[in-house]
Simulated scan of single mutants.
Amino acid sequence: MRVSEKGQITIPKHLRERAGIAPNSEVTVDFDGGRLIIAAADGHAEKANRARLERFLKALRKLEGTGDQSIDADQLMKMTRDR
């Protein structure tokens, strides 16, 4: 991707679609740890990320308490290292 003399870039269509950025829509631009973050101003991408996080947390909750409580951390580490 190249930046024009006016500081403009063209966001590829597949990335705009994934981020929920529609033609003529507003976007937000933030700076975080050396990165520019461009997002749809309507929060579509944020809503999608939150939904994905909720699905992940739900899956983790299902696993809670299913592990073998008789195995301590040292035993588990030995089992996973010695494969």
Rank of each mutant, 00 (worst) to 15 (best):
M1R: 06
M1S: 12
M1C: 04
M1N: 12
M1E: 06
V3A: 06
S4R: 05
E5P: 07
E5K: 10
K6Q: 10
K6W: 14
G7I: 03
G7C: 04
Q8M: 13
I9C: 03
T10V: 15
T10L: 14
T10H: 06
T10F: 12
T10K: 11
I11C: 00
K13M: 08
L15T: 07
L15P: 00
L15Q: 14
E17S: 15
E17F: 09
E17W: 07
E17P: 08
R18L: 14
A19E: 10
G20I: 01
A22F: 07
A22K: 14
A22G: 06
A22M: 15
P23V: 02
N24S: 13
N24Q: 15
S25H: 03
E26P: 05
T28H: 01
T28E: 07
T28V: 03
T28C: 03
V29K: 04
V29I: 10
D30A: 08
F31A: 14
F31R: 13
G33N: 11
G33R: 09
R35M: 15
R35V: 13
L36P: 00
L36Q: 03
I37M: 02
I37Q: 02
I37T: 05
I38F: 04
A40C: 07
A41D: 03
A41V: 00
D42E: 01
G43M: 01
G43I: 01
G43P: 05
H44I: 06
H44N: 05
A45S: 14
E46W: 12
E46I: 11
A48S: 12
A48K: 12
A48F: 04
A48I: 07
N49A: 15
N49F: 14
N49D: 12
R50Y: 14
A51I: 11
A51P: 00
R52K: 14
L53W: 15
L53A: 12
E54P: 09
R55F: 10
R55A: 13
R55Y: 10
L57D: 08
K58D: 10
K58I: 07
K58Y: 04
K58Q: 06
A59H: 11
A59F: 13
L60C: 08
L60I: 07
L60G: 04
R61H: 10
K62S: 06
L63Y: 00
L63R: 14
L63F: 01
E64M: 09
G65P: 00
G65M: 03
T66V: 04
G67V: 06
G67Q: 08
D68G: 08
D68P: 05
D68S: 03
D68W: 03
D68E: 06
I71M: 05
I71L: 10
I71K: 05
D72K: 03
A73N: 11
A73M: 13
A73D: 12
A73T: 10
D74V: 13
D74W: 13
Q75E: 15
Q75M: 08
Q75F: 03
Q75T: 11
L76S: 01
M77I: 15
K78L: 10
M79G: 09
M79Y: 04
M79I: 10
T80E: 02
R81K: 13
R81T: 15
R81H: 08
